[in-house]
Structures are given as C-alpha cells and as structure tokens.
Amino acid sequence: MSGILSNKEVKQFIYEGYVRLDNVFSKEIADNALDILWDDLPFDRQDPSTWKAPVVRLGMYTEQPFVDSVNTQRLYKVFDQLIGRDRWVPCGSVGTFPVRFPSDKEPNDTGKHVDAGFPGDDPDNFFEWRVNVRSKGRALLMLVLYSDVSENDAPTVIYKKSHRDVARLLSKEGDSGLSFMELANKLEGLPKWETVHAIGKAGTVYLCHPFLVHTAQGHKGKVPKFMAQPPLLLRGELSIPGSKGDQSPVERAICLALE
C-alpha cells in the first residue's frame, strides 16, 4: 500500500487500533495555539498556585493555528490511506479542550469510553450521542498534542486492540447502535487490554480507530497538558462487510473482528 504510512504502521493501525505521527505541525503553531488557550483560562499562566482545578474545559476553537495543525498535507495523505479518498471531511475546528493541570485531586472524567459519532433523540445531550458498527459520522479519533506530554503529564490511556472487541459489541446492535453511556457501561465486561500512553512532543498526533477505547487520567507532573481530540468526520458510513479488495484499513479492522 502506497502512502505516508509504512505497511507495518498500517498493520499496527488495523490490529492495535492506532498509529503515532511525530512532527505533524511546528512548535510555532503549537505555541500560538497555547497563547490563545491561556488567554481563555481562569488561571495565571506564571503562577501555579492559581491552578485550582484538575481539568478545565474550553470551547470550540477555529482560529488559524488550530485549523492549520489538523489540515496538513501529510495528514491528508494519511487520511486517504486509512479511510479512502473523498470519504472524510477536513477539520474546521479542533473541538473542545480538556486542559489538565497538576493536582492531587482526581478528575471526574477518567472512565473508559469510545467517542460517539451521531446524535440520539437529544442532540444537546452528549451522553446520548451514539455509535454504530458502521461508525456513522466518525472516521477517526485524533489525539493532538499542543504541549509536550510525558508519562507524568496525564497522557491519554489507549487500550490496544480494544476496537476489535467494541466492533463485536456493536455488530449486535443494528444501525441504531449504542449511546455513549450504554457502550461505556459495557466496557468493563470486555477482556483486559494492554495499554499505551499518548505521549510525545507538541506537534505529535495519534490517529485512532473510531472504536478505540481510551480514558483520561490524573496529572502528576508540573506543566499543564494541552491536547485536543477532534473527530475526523466521515462522509456517510463504512462498508461493513465489504469486498476485501476495496476495504480501507478502518473497515478492515472491523471486518477482521467480526470474522
């Protein structure tokens, strides 16, 4: 398969559910994004004593550094490789930011989950958004680092190969799938998975299968963590099942799980 990712990386995405890309965007872009984010935070950037909460959520960001960070030619080529040309929608924003601060308090959002792709009966209720086996509305989950993230800096926990178990769950639920909370409540009953932490320098992007289970964790370091996790939107739905010769890696991962 031609493209930015090697055959080994594509196989990793199919079987483990994610691939890491380094140096996707520059430190200058990351720093410009951080300046905007800090202006919106209720804390003093220079005074850690003011960082009173383990996590602060900021709103949607469509400013230039954010849009530039997730619309590089390199990413576009990898999107084509993982999903298929003309099957995804370029990102117009990076969504909300859960900014994580060093704290002895545990954040209240550390449960295992899969991000949902389409609205339920109440579109304003995030927990009622849904996921189905064709991944309606969502092509990929992206973890986009705007600050350097080490093992101590609340890296997102990725559960390797969990996307395959989630595919099996969703295959029993038809086109309506499961709500965010319905699916989250079923995850503890699935097999135990090996974990990997989403660490890296600012400019690192993890591209994850839309069914990949992940979770936040508390921050034990010294420098606040800035990471966005926007969806890459899907045009239509995935072809499940489909002709093996025409399947994208996203589709192939699901079909292998269902064989």
Rank of each mutant, 00 (worst) to 15 (best):
S171W: 05
V196I: 12
L178R: 04
G59K: 04
R252D: 09
S49Y: 02
Y18Q: 03
V144C: 13
L140T: 04
H219S: 07
S2R: 13
R134Y: 12
R168Q: 14
S2P: 12
R87T: 11
M1G: 15
C208D: 04
N185Q: 14
S150M: 01
E173V: 01
K136S: 08
S179Q: 04
P102Q: 11
I29D: 06
Y15R: 15
V133N: 09
R138D: 11
D22L: 09
T50M: 06
H113K: 01
K225I: 05
L140W: 08
P119D: 06
S243W: 10
P155A: 08
Y18P: 03
P155S: 03
P210S: 10
P107D: 01
D47V: 09
R164K: 11
D124S: 15
V19I: 07
A253I: 06
H113R: 00
D153S: 14
D35T: 11
E173R: 06
L58R: 09
N125L: 14
G137I: 00
W88H: 09
Q247G: 05
V55D: 02
I4H: 08
Y146N: 04
F13H: 06
T62P: 04
Q81V: 06
Q247W: 03
S243D: 15
A257P: 00
E251W: 10
V157Q: 04
P231G: 15
M227W: 05
L234R: 10
R57Y: 15
T156K: 05
V70T: 04
R45T: 03
S150Y: 02
V213K: 02
A154S: 12
V56K: 15
G218M: 12
L169A: 03
W38Y: 08
I158V: 09
A253W: 01
D165Y: 07
L58Q: 13
P191S: 03
V56T: 13
Q64R: 15
T204C: 07
S239M: 10
V223Q: 15
K225V: 11
Y206H: 13
E128W: 00
M181R: 11
V166W: 02
A33R: 05
G200A: 02
F127R: 15
S93F: 11
K244Y: 13
G92W: 14
A228R: 14
H113V: 03
F118P: 01
L170Y: 04
N7L: 11
S248I: 00
D47R: 14
D31G: 10
M1R: 13
A139C: 09
R85Y: 13
F118T: 00
I4N: 06
R130E: 02
